[in-house]
Structure formats: structure tokens, C-alpha cells
Design a binder for these strands. Structure first.
Length: 514
DNA sequence: GTATCCAGTCAGGCCAATAA
DNA sequence: TTATTGGCCTGACTGGATAC
């Protein structure tokens, strides 16, 4: 008897899904584990389950496939026979034989060596071999057969041959599988191109290829006949007109219909009409311009645009051209590039975009990684140029360039006239009065000229986190034992020291206190 | 008791189908 | 490509039944 309550852990698979669902198990997902009661396993399962002998009661285990097909289970043949005496077995039908009156014996043909031999009457029905050696040979691998699939001759053990229910023999498992596959296939005629093709008998395949199927479908399964035609939107509601050319067109789905009627979306008969309407009507509207501005800002912040040929840069280029000053764009200084190098005067101008260089007037903190990167680069560039070329760069900011190009022009003039010497080098610190530039009363300091500590304090936590290379798991946070300030320290160093303070001063003070 | 036969048992191994 | 499961074939082996 199979021991009740045994739960076997199985995984959902295609092969067993139907079986287990029929037993009441709820399918979750393929490969997901679930518990199956031993008695519910598939009859061919190789899972090992426990049982008790129906004769002696001894507990043992066997593969499910050897237990599930029987009602009674025994630990040995002895136990089985004790409980169920073996019935008289059917006599095996022997091969044809003839009676020899001279010897009063029957003549038979040995199933192994094919030689003739004689047996007494009581053995005429059951004897198959002329000798024990022939019986052994005949019983074991001595039967020549032809493979059902490849027709190759092969040897098969007789016991195995006799137990073969299908009576189809194969030289190998591969041949058996190939034969099975071939038998499951049939030749069909494609309903579209009439070509013959092979398909499994159980499949309802009607076409030789997906190409034929789609072509057939494009002819016979369109409109209301289409497989995915949604009847909730009748044909009369689908018929409409193109908003650009006025030609009749059809709405393909209820979703599209809702977009047009409820969300005010536009409908066109072709891509050509869509493009014409877009360029002539939509792109000229104020609504589009507003959306476009938002989009451009977004692209700039995401770094999608190349910003070397920007509008402010073009303005400065045109001013320099107008002033008849020869210059080089993107002048190469080995490690850095300068926006405008004034050839005849050996001076340099940088065009500063509000976003990229983080104009302090617009950005109270440094909220983007690329802004911080640019600020640090500006600092290095300024120092490098001063050291290597002894030039003070003139920084013209986007706001002045776009709103006060005249101020920029006068500032450039002053920069050239003074041979690169100014009281300040940032355009936002100058005002234009009576067509003359003068230093503003209030001086603004750009991030690139602030103390590093101040710059760091302006960086948002998000940017700090993304730029930090610190391996957080190697650090520990603690409160200073003297002043109580929250401090971070490498775990290695923390574990080495007896006292934990935020600074040397605190550490010294604490030691003194003790 | 011996010789012979054979049904039944058990487990190894290959393959197909399928999901991930 | 790999892992898993079920389906199927197979050989080796066991031990009861039977005739002599």
C-alpha cells in the first residue's frame, strides 16, 4: 500500500499540466514548484515513493511507475505469492511440429540454431530449443531482426522482443523516434499556393508557410471578416474622412475611435497627408511652439543635442566678424578647447551657456552631474590657460549674449583695447550705460570661482551620490565622542582606534578630559 | 530434485516537447 | 542552449510453475 500523505515536490511542465489539473491541482507557472500527493503522480513517473508491503507490512520505496499501476504492493516475490498464488499460466504456442511414429516423438525446429530435434509428447507444446545452450543464446540477444525504420539487421534479446507490445522493432532509439515522427506526419496541400507540404496529423495547418497564410488572410479575412475585428465598433462608425485631403478613410479599431472622438486626435488617410498637415498647420501653432520649447530644454538637459554650435556661439561669432576681428573656433590648447581665440590679439573668449555652466543667477544649487563636471572643468581650464598662456579668459554668459549683444560687443572691444586686462571677466558683472560698459556695483561670483567647499555645499545629495566612488560598505557612521558630531570613517581605521572622534582637536580634547 | 520455461520486476538510457 | 519531465524501449535478473 502506498503510504498516504506523502508529498512529492514537482515542477509544473507542459507534459504533466493536464494530468495534475485533472487531479485538482491549480496551475501557477511553468517551472514553479508544487507539492503532489504520491498517489496523484503520473503512472510513468520515476519519482521514488514509499509503500508498505501488503503481506508483511515492511516499509520500502520504489519508483512511482512501478507502484501506481498496481493495486497491491509487495516487498518481494515471496510476499506476493504468499498473498496471491500464481495462476496457471497460459501455455505458449510452440512452432509447427510433426509426429515421428518410429520414435514416438515429435519433431520441432530449434528457435535458436534452426536445427531439427525431437521431444516427447508432453514437451511438444512447450519446448522451443534443442539444448540448454541454445535456450540461453535464444533467450539473450540472439534474435536477428530488421529495423522498422532503416531496415538494418540487428540483434535483439528474445525476452525483450516478446515483451514488445507494439511488435515494431528498431535498431536504435533514434530510429524508433524518427519512425514515430514520420508516422505522425502527413502530406497536405496548401490552400493558397496548392504546393504539397508536410505537417503533423494532429495539426490543423492549412498553409505551407506564414507568407501564404498572410496573403490568403489579406484577401479573405479583412474588414468585418478579420479575426480581430471588434464588433463593438460597427462599420458605419469606422467610415470617416481625412482631415487634410478629404478622401474617405477607415478607423481601424475602437481605441483609435476613442482617441479621435474623446481625445481630439486627428485622422489622416496617409503618411503624406499627416506630414503636410504637420508642416503647414500644426508646426505653425503657438501650442506646438510651447511644446517644442519644453522639448528642447529637456533634450539639452539630457545631453541629446550637440551644444558646440549653439545660438549664443553664433551671436558671438557674428559680433567678432562684424568687428573685423579674426578668430578661431574651438581653438585647441592641448588639454582644452577655447570657444574663440582672437588670433591678432592673443586673447580668448568663452561662451557660457546658462545650463551647462550653471549660471548662479538661475541655479541656486548644482542639481545635475554634468553641471558639476563642467564647473570643475572650467576651473581647471582657467588655471591652465593662465599658467601656460598667461591669458585671462573673457567669459560671456548666455543671458547677456542673447539679451544684450551690444554689452557683449563693447566688452569685447574693452577686452581687446586693454590687452586682456579687466576688473572682472564675467559679462554679468558689467552694465551698459551711454553705450559704454562699466563694472556693476554688485559683483556676482560664478560657481567656477567659488571656494571648493562652497561649491560642494551647493551640490545636491542626488548628484553627490551619483559621483561618489566611496564603497559605502567599508565605512561606518558614528557620533564624535567629544563633540557629538555625526562623522564617517573607514571601518578598518575605526576598529583600530580606541577613541572615536571627528577630528584631531576633538580627540586631543577628549584625552585631556580623561 | 532437476531441468526448463517464462511472467514479472527493476532500473538505465534515449528522445521529444517545452519553458526559460 | 539548457534543464526538466514523461514516454518508451531495453537488458538483466528473479523465482514460481511444470514435467519428468
Amino acid at each position: 500500500m502506498i503510504i498516504e500523505g506523502q508529498m512529492i515536490e514537482m515542477k509544473w511542465s507542459v507534459l504533466g499540466k493536464e494530468h495534475y489539473e485533472s487531479k485538482g491541482y491549480v496551475f501557477t507557472a511553468y517551472k514553479e514548484k508544487f507539492d503532489v500527493e504520491a498517489k496523484d503522480l503520473m503512472v510513468n513517473s520515476k519519482e521514488v515513493i514509499r509503500y508498505t508491503c501488503d503481506n508483511c507490512g515492511v516499509e520500502d520505496s520504489k519508483q512511482a511507475r512501478n507502484l501506481l499501476i498496481k493495486e497491491k504492493h509487495y516487498c518481494s516475490l515471496k510476499c506476493r505469492n504468499a498473498k496471491e498464488p500464481i495462476k496457471q499460466r497460459e501455455k505458449k504456442i510452440a512452432s509447427p511440429y510433426t509426429y515421428d511414429p518410429a520414435t514416438k516423438r515429435y519433431e520441432k525446429e530449434c528457435q535458436n540454431c534452426k536445427s531439427k530435434y525431437q521431444v516427447p509428447s508432453y514437451r511438444k507444446d512447450i519446448s522451443n530449443y534443442c539444448s540448454e545452450s541454445c535456450r540461453r543464446l535464444g533467450m539473450n540477444k540472439q534474435v536477428e531482426l530488421n529495423c522498422k525504420h532503416c531496415d538494418k539487421q540487428f540483434i535483439r534479446g528474445l525476452s525483450g522482443m516478446k515483451r514488445n507490445k507494439s511488435k515494431q522493432f528498431f535498431c536504435s532509439s533514434a530510429c524508433a523516434a524518427s519512425y514515430k515522427t514520420e508516422q505522425s506526419m502527413e502530406t497536405k496541400e496548401c490552400e493558397y499556393c496548392n504546393e504539397l507540404f508536410k505537417s503533423k496529423k494532429k495539426y490543423k495547418q492549412r498553409f505551407c508557410s506564414t507568407k501564404c497564410q498572410s496573403e490568403w488572410q489579406s484577401i479573405y479575412l479583412v474588414g468585418e471578416k478579420a479575426n480581430n475585428f471588434n464588433k463593438s465598433l460597427p462599420l458605419n462608425k469606422r467610415n470617416t474622412k481625412c482631415e487634410w485631403c478629404g478622401n474617405s478613410t477607415k478607423i481601424k479599431s475602437p481605441t483609435k475611435y476613442r482617441q479621435i472622438t474623446e481625445q481630439g486626435k486627428h485622422i489622416f488617410c496617409s503618411t503624406k497627408c499627416t506630414k503636410q498637415w504637420y508642416s503647414s498647420v500644426w508646426s505653425q501653432s503657438e501650442e506646438w511652439r510651447e511644446a517644442s520649447r519644453i522639448r528642447q530644454t529637456k533634450f539639452l538637459s539630457e545631453g541629446i543635442f550637440d551644444h558646440t554650435d549653439t545660438a549664443p556661439q553664433k551671436v558671438i561669432d557674428s559680433i567678432l566678424t562684424e568687428m573685423n576681428v579674426s578668430y578661431i573656433n574651438e581653438y585647441n590648447c592641448k588639454y582644452f578647447a577655447i570657444d574663440n581665440y582672437l588670433i591678432d590679439h592673443n586673447l580668448m573668449i568663452e561662451v557660457m551657456g546658462s545650463y551647462w555652466h550653471c549660471d548662479t543667477r538661475h541655479y541656486n544649487d548644482i542639481a545635475y552631474k554634468r553641471q558639476l563636471k563642467r564647473i570643475m572643468n572650467d576651473r581647471r581650464k582657467k588655471a591652465y590657460i593662465k599658467e601656460q598662456y598667461n591669458i585671462n579668459i573673457l567669459y560671456l554668459w548666455e543671458e547677456e549674449i542673447m539679451n544684450e549683444p551690444k554689452l557683449c560687443k563693447r566688452l569685447i572691444q574693452k577686452y581687446i583695447e586693454n590687452k586682456g586686462l579687466l576688473d572682472n571677466y564675467h559679462s554679468f558683472n558689467f552694465i551698459l550705460k551711454d553705450d559704454k560698459v562699466s563694472l556693476s556695483s554688485s559683483i556676482t561670483l560664478p560657481y567656477m570661482e567659488m571656494e571648493l567647499e562652497i561649491v560642494q555645499s551647493k551640490v545636491t545629495e542626488r548628484v553627490k551620490k551619483s559621483t561618489s566612488q566611496k564603497q559605502l560598505d567599508k565605512w561606518i557612521t558614528f557620533n564624535c565622542e567629544y563633540c557629538g558630531k555625526e562623522t564617517e570613517q573607514l571601518k578598518v581605521r575605526y576598529n583600530k582606534s580606541k577613541t572615536h572622534c571627528c577630528s584631531r582637536a576633538c580627540s586631543y580634547a577628549r584625552q585631556k578630559q580623561m
